[in-house]
Write a protein that binds this DNA or RNA. Structure first.
Lengths: 107, 107
DNA sequence: ATTTGATTCAACCATATGGTTGAATGATAG
DNA sequence: CTATCATTCAACCATATGGTTGAATCAAAT
């Protein structure tokens, strides 16, 4: 019996798309409107709004109204849930953080 | 311009399914054959073999032949790539590990 | 060499996903 | 109140995904 854990389905599903990861990276730096977010991409505004909606349903971002626009910002908690989950698949705990540090140092 | 990063598409895409996460958890404990992996689920062997194949293409597991069967095992490196990537979305570094520890303690 | 067991492949089906366009809604500015 | 800007909704299309079954492959055992 597999416990579905819809939350993780949605979180990882949302992260499985490059455009959405890009949006997430951008809103993790600062709040952005939907229109601002849509700017750099060669797709319709509606398509980007859908991507934001997917991120929102996964709990990775939240939206708040500001006048006629809506500001999108990251929700670090949801990302931490995903990060914590990944640790379940790793046998050696010490190694994990070593490698993580190494990978981050490379950037 | 969004750099596609196929590797992450595949990794997060693979993790977006509860059955695959379950398989990954099981092989992270010890190597398992495809048939062993298929046992607990109410689906066909072929369906599970496909899931394993998705995990394999994402680099999350590897297969090695052992006589007439194939043993599946986890590839911690790929999981670390995903974990490292998640950190990019988090502004507050200190918080991250605090919350991670807290979440793990709860299990 | 044949049979048996384990895995893979191929064809197919239903639903999900990511994209489009055009119309509808919300909120501010004239 | 109406025009305008920002976002959302609805209908639609093409392709991807997860599942099925039956045939094909690969490796051991008889």
């Amino acid at each position: 019996m597999v416990e579905s854990n819809l939350a993780l389905d949605l979180i990882f599903g949302a992260l499985a798309d490059a455009t959405r990861r890009d949006i997430l990276k951008r809103v993790s730096r600062e709040e952005q409107t939907i229109s601002e977010l849509a700017q750099p991409y060669a797709t319709s505004l509606a398509a980007i709004a859908k991507h934001v909606s997917v991120l929102e349903k996964a709990g990775l971002v939240t939206k708040r109204r500001n006048g006629k626009e809506k500001l999108v910002r990251v929700t670090p908690e949801a990302i931490e849930v995903a990060a914590a989950h990944l640790s379940e698949y790793e046998k050696v705990w010490g190694d994990r953080f070593d490698t993580l540090e190494k990978l981050l140092a490379e950037k």
